[in-house]
Amino acid sequence: MAENLYASTNVSQTVDKKLETRKFFNGHYIESINVNSSEHQAVKSFFLEKTQNDNDASNTLTDTMIEIGAMEKVNVMELIDKLRGETIDDIQLTLITMINQNRKQTSILGFSTSRVPNPSVVRNIVE
């Protein structure tokens, strides 16, 4: 049987004895959102209609919409009513914008637009 080369180390192992710190970080990214089943079904039906019955896309958009509603403390049905006349592309742009409002500036989701390079930088790039 081969010996595990990574099992031993000369670096002393420490165990964080602060239970409160571990509890905080263990639950840091786990936050439950209570969703009314009828609202969930209504939002999913809305996205099924907009995505022409694409179940995977509608599930993803439904989860995103419910998460945005929870972050913004807005009723999801009100958001759906405002988006009812929009195309799916416009809805996706709206959702991206709403998500970006709650993100740090360094992790903003991008739009598919081409950036115009700085002319003084372009002259230094060898193709």
Rank of each mutant, 00 (worst) to 15 (best):
K18E: 12
K73I: 08
P117V: 06
I80C: 02
Y6T: 05
Y6R: 13
M98I: 08
S107T: 15
E67L: 09
L109S: 06
V74K: 07
S32N: 08
E67T: 15
N26A: 08
T113E: 13
K73T: 08
E49I: 00
T106P: 07
I125W: 11
L61G: 09
N55S: 04
T94I: 10
K73F: 06
I96H: 07
L83I: 10
E78R: 05
E39I: 09
T21E: 09
A7N: 13
L48P: 02
R84P: 01
S120C: 04
M77R: 02
G85K: 15
A57W: 04
S58N: 01
S38H: 13
R123E: 15
I99C: 07
H40A: 06
S37P: 09
S12C: 08
R103Y: 12
I88C: 00
N36V: 10
N118F: 00
N4M: 03
K44C: 04
N75L: 11
N118A: 10
E127K: 09
T87K: 06
K104Q: 15
L83Y: 15
V74T: 10
K50P: 03
I96C: 06
Q13A: 07
V116C: 04
T9A: 01
D56R: 08
S45F: 01
R22Q: 04
A7W: 10
L48K: 06
I99T: 13
T64S: 07
I80D: 03
R22A: 04
N34G: 06
A7E: 14
I30G: 04
F25M: 11
P119R: 00
L79C: 09
Q52K: 12
T60R: 11
E3H: 05
T62Q: 00
F47M: 04
T97E: 15
S8E: 12
I30S: 14
R84K: 15
V116M: 07
K17C: 11
I99M: 14
R115K: 11
L48R: 03
I91Q: 05
V35F: 06
R22L: 09
D89I: 13
Q13W: 03
L48Q: 05
G27W: 05
S12A: 13
N26E: 12
N4Y: 04
T60L: 08
F46G: 03
T64F: 05
G110T: 10
N53H: 10
S37F: 14
K50N: 06
R22G: 07
E127Y: 14
Q13Y: 09
R22D: 12
R22W: 06
